[in-house]
Design a protein around this nucleic acid. Structure first.
Length: 827
RNA sequence: GCUCCAGUGGUGGAAUCGGUAGACACGUUGGACUUAAAAUCCAAUGAGGGUCAAACCUCGUACCAGUUCAAGUCUGGUCUGGAGCACCA
């Protein structure tokens, strides 16, 4: 017997235990059903779930359950992105052991996730900080190293003082650290990089294949990769003509303006800059470079900054014109983009124009077009002037011609340039996977032998020493022997960026327990690519770009056969409260535990998907939760009240009265709409609306108790509870199991197939015909379905209101939309 | 500056192919039940006009044009907001 009222906590506790006992959500690799891989971005075990997690995992879980009911063998795993700084900070601040701290958080959050009712196969759980996982992260690093995709170099890298470590370009947001928000400075260090730039072109090109990704994410990645096609032009330095020669190459997207070059700019960090500086200018140039270095550390962000620079004293010869042009150093040139040197054409580039005006450098027009004025840089298309044999040519055409000319003469060629830089993966921190290499005095840098993996994190470390990696404080870790010659060697103490760990976790789920390989090739090919990935937009570049790179690199190494990891991507919006992001400092957080305790997980799940489409931000409101809770109570009461009438073995009679016929159709309409809305972009908000509409229709039906047809009511209620089952996972199970008590069908509702609708019944018998005159609605007529166009026109013209509206006018034509509308055009 | 996304009642948001704008909720107001409250149920709820009350009329999807019998939806332009990139040559 169902209780008369809905008591969620009681029901939820009962079924949680039952499911756990039965391993209800176990996924098997061998199944003849088609596979479906539903994945949420795995959480960092910070201590407690927040509402963003609840939203993310509920969305994925509803999808997973829906697909399972629709005949798929569904993989829906979960794990922990468990390396990272917070664990280490806990160690520094209150002496916690990072491993224990992390384990404690994982076990608490795991309990919460189970409470949320996720259909996760916990046997495939992974945690990136465990040896059985990071062993394979290290192994993958070695494969990348052997393929030449991991290398070490000295470079000016991003340094976060507060985190005391370097950062990848992608982790610097507006000049600040992505994690702690403090200023990032530059530091010259020897660091490990992954050659993501080798994949720049294919990472860009393959974005087109990703039809299941939003344009916003794709353009963000495209912008980040930043492809531009142009030309390299090499300029001879006049002062070195007698001294063996020196060339400065520049990259330009505007070779068509080459005749207008009046000076050349190099970045303050340009390698040859000292050679290029004459003794008279040495002091001013040194000073300028010193200032630029400081400037870039303090305020590199100001775009409105007035451009500054100083001449080096040397000159280049423009090979097109023979003109001698001075070389300047200016910080508007960036050392690691293009060649670090820029040809300046003030007449046709705004930056060059401002600079030339300020320092009185010549300006030569070489493009003419409508709106040209000498008062500002003309950057529009036009025709070449002052450009010798190229005069009169359209500038777009001239780009190719001038590049060809330069190539023939041997001082240039076309070039594709990317903004993407190699991925810096070394971190001077403790809580990460150690980079598995050693440094031998004789043999140099050598990879650790694969059979010696994992290189375990030392435990004899001191977190209290500031300014150095805790790994270095270990007495045992650093000293080792060379894997090649056996002589004493020093172990690398840097650990890997945690984004390395998260770049392949979704592959490990396919074969999580494998202790021989990172994953079995067949299994990873079977389950991947991920059919639906769900997570926050904040990873649009970072994690999603790195994972795409990893997949392509591992494919090239031969570890797998697909080239994109995530077929469909849903970036869910943030959970807000009172219009702003939930945060502890604002004090507007909502604790999932409290919601579970007060309303139950089903209410939390229903509410979090109800009001906004998944991609949009979602404003949490207490009244909204209350509303969802009341709705579930309302649904529950329906079953509790009519449980004696409901039968699982219902049979819809041939003949129905209009009331029952109407309900029957409402159910079919609901099945159709809900199914379509989930399949089409996961519009859960309208799914929830339809739940309510169907519930209202059933309440309407039972209002007058004497005309109830028990079979139709059973059909309606059993359909409703199955439609609700991906969302209200506990309540639907409870209700169904009680209903099943009296029938032979004792099976979990979550094992039932998704309801089917009949197209012929998924529409109402009657339609409201809209009658327009000249596009304005003049009448609405209730009539039957499927009438001919002529009949509908006749019906429309018979209406008194229409007669009145067209009186004295001639009908020019009539337009009929079957079952919907008649538009009469009159003059 | 460039790129992408969005703009609909008091609020969240609906609206397959261009075909009833505002579904479903939240909120508000009124009513029923109750000694009272909660819960529940019923009704009204875009703006303006009109009427004793209705019927009914006009306007209305950021703004301005256009295409069309018909535009929230398509096209061009403008404005506003959000996101990302940004001295990228």
């Amino acid at each position: 017997m169902l209780m008369s009222e809905y008591y969620p906590t009681k029901i939820e506790k009962k079924w949680l235990e039952e499911w756990e006992k039965n391993k209800a959500f176990k996924t098997y690799d061998d199944s003849n059903k088609p596979k479906y891989y539903a994945l949420s971005m795995f959480p960092y075990p910070s201590g407690k779930l927040h509402m963003g997690h609840v939203r993310n995992y509920t969305i994925t879980d509803v999808i997973a359950r829906f697909k399972k009911s629709n005949g798929f063998n569904v993989l829906h795993p979960m794990g922990w992105d468990s390396f990272g700084l917070p664990a280490e900070n806990a160690a520094i601040q209150h002496g916690a052991n990072p491993a224990e701290w992390t384990d404690k958080n994982i076990s608490y959050m795991k309990k919460q996730l189970k409470m949320l009712g996720l259909s996760v196969d916990w046997d495939r759980e992974v945690a990136t900080c465990k040896e059985d996982y990071y062993k394979w992260t290290q192994w993958l690093f070695l494969q990348l190293y052997k393929k030449g995709l991991a290398y070490k170099k000295g470079a000016a890298v991003n340094w976060c003082e507060k985190c005391a470590t370097v950062l990848a370009n992608e982790q610097v947001i507006d000049g600040k650290c992505w994690r702690c928000d403090s200023d990032v400075t530059k530091k010259n260090l020897e660091q490990w990089f992954l050659k993501i730039t080798d994949y720049a072109e294919v990472l860009l090109e393959d974005l087109d294949k990703l039809e299941g990704w939003g344009d916003n994410v794709k353009t963000m990645q495209a912008n980040w990769i930043g492809k531009s096609t142009g030309t390299i032009l090499k300029f001879k330095v006049k002062e070195f003509e007698d001294k063996g020669g020196l060339e400065i190459p520049v990259f330009t997207t505007r070779p068509d303006t080459a005749f207008g070059i009046t000076y050349l700019v190099v970045a303050p960090e340009y390698p040859d800059i000292e050679k290029l500086t004459t003794p008279e200018n040495k002091e001013t140039v040194e000073q300028y470079r010193e200032n630029a270095r400081k400037m870039s550390e303090i305020e590199r962000l100001s775009t409105e900054r007035i451009k500054t620079g100083t001449p080096l004293g040397t000159h280049i010869i423009n090979p097109f014109t023979g003109r001698i042009c001075p070389i300047w150093v200016a910080d508007y040139a960036i050392v690691d983009y293009g060649t670090g040197a820029v040809m300046a054409v003030p007449a046709h580039d705004e930056r060059d124009f401002d600079f030339a005006k300020k320092y009185n450098l010549p300006i030569i027009q070489v493009i003419d077009g409508e709106g040209y004025t000498p008062d500002k840089a003309y950057t529009e298309p036009g025709t070449l002037v002052n450009s010798g044999e190229f005069n009169g040519i359209n500038n777009e055409e001239a780009k190719a011609k001038i590049t060809q000319y330069a190539e023939k003469q041997g001082f240039g060629h076309s070039k594709t340039q990317y903004r993407l830089r190699d991925w810096l993966i070394s971190r001077q921190r403790y809580w990460g996977a150690p980079i598995p290499v050693v440094y031998c005095e004789k043999c140099g840098c050598q990879p650790v032998n694969e059979e010696d993996l994992p290189v375990k994190l030392p435990t004899d470390v001191d977190f209290s020493i500031q300014g150095m990696s805790p790994v270095k404080t270990s007495k045992t870790f650093e000293s080792t022997v060379c894997p090649v010659c056996g002589s004493p060697a020093r172990r690398e103490t840097d650990t890997m960026d945690t984004f390395m760990c998260s770049s392949w976790y979704y592959m490990r789920y396919a074969d999580a327990k494998n202790d021989k390989e990172a994953f079995n090739k067949d299994l990873v090919n079977k389950w991947l690519p991920v059919d639906q990935y769900v997570g926050g937009i904040e990873h649009a570049i970072l994690h999603l770009l790195y994972s795409r790179f990893f997949t392509k690199a591992l494919r090239d190494i031969g570890l797998l056969d697909f080239d994109e990891p995530f077929k469909n991507l849903l970036t869910q919006g943030m959970v807000l409260k009172d219009g702003s992001k939930m945060s502890k400092s604002k004090g507007n957080t909502v604790d999932p535990d409290e919601i579970f305790a007060n309303y139950g997980a089903d209410t939390a799940r229903l509410f979090i998907i109800s009001d906004s489409p998944p991609a949009r931000d979602f404003d949490w409101s207490d009244a909204g939760v209350e509303g969802c809770y009341k709705f579930l109570c309302r649904v529950y009461r329906l079953y509790s009240k009519y449980q004696d009438l409901i039968t699982l073995d219902y049979k819809i009679p041939e003949k129905l009265d209009s009331k029952s016929d109407r309900l029957l159709r409402e159910v079919h309409i609901s099945i159709k709409k809900i199914t379509n809305d989930i399949e089409n972009e996961f519009q859960f908000n309208t799914v929830v609306s339809r739940y309510r509409e169907l519930t209202n229709a059933i309440y309407d039906y039972v209002k007058d108790e004497k005309d109830i047809e028990a079979n139709v009511l059973s059909f309606a209620l059993i359909s409703l509870i199955k439609l609700l089952s991906p969302v209200a996972v506990y309540m639907s199970e409870e209700i169904y199991s009680e209903l099943a008590q009296k029938s032979s069908k004792k099976v979990s509702i979550h094992e039932l197939d998704w309801p089917k609708y009949e197209e012929s019944l998924a529409k109402l018998n009657n339609v409201t015909l809209i009658v327009q005159v000249n596009g304005k609605i003049r009448d609405k007529i209730e009539t039957t379905n499927n009438q001919s166009n002529d009949d509908l026109t006749k019906l429309a013209l018979d209406s008194d209101k229409i007669k009145q509206a067209i009186e004295g006018k001639t009908v020019v034509k009539t337009i009929v939309v079957p079952n919907k509308l008649v538009n009469i055009v009159v003059k």
